[in-house]
Amino acid sequence: MPEITRAEVAHLANLARIDLSDDELDHLAPQLSVILESVASISGVAGDDVPPTSHALPLTNVFREDVVTPGLTPEQALSGAPAVEEQRFSVPRILGEEQ
């Protein structure tokens, strides 16, 4: 029976960058276990010979011409930003490494 432990929820929340409180962790772990138990019912329903469907309709090769089209002005681009400096998005200090 699949079960998500509290520690696993904490790990997943970390991957998903959500700072869950202890209360939320306590609350979510059993709820997710219930949901997971239910959705796990599909394991084994489809055999190895069944191809997966990632797209509802079988379209392929939808391409754009390589031409420049009008985008946003910097003012529009930055209009929703919590903070702006030097026509750039101002973000809190970045830990870790440069990309």
Partner: peptide, 14 residues
């Protein structure tokens, strides 16, 4: 086990 399997069941539903 989960996402991959769900995509297959999706095929069965279609």
């Amino acid at each position: 086990a989960y996402y991959g399997q769900a995509q297959k069941v999706r095929t069965l539903i279609s």
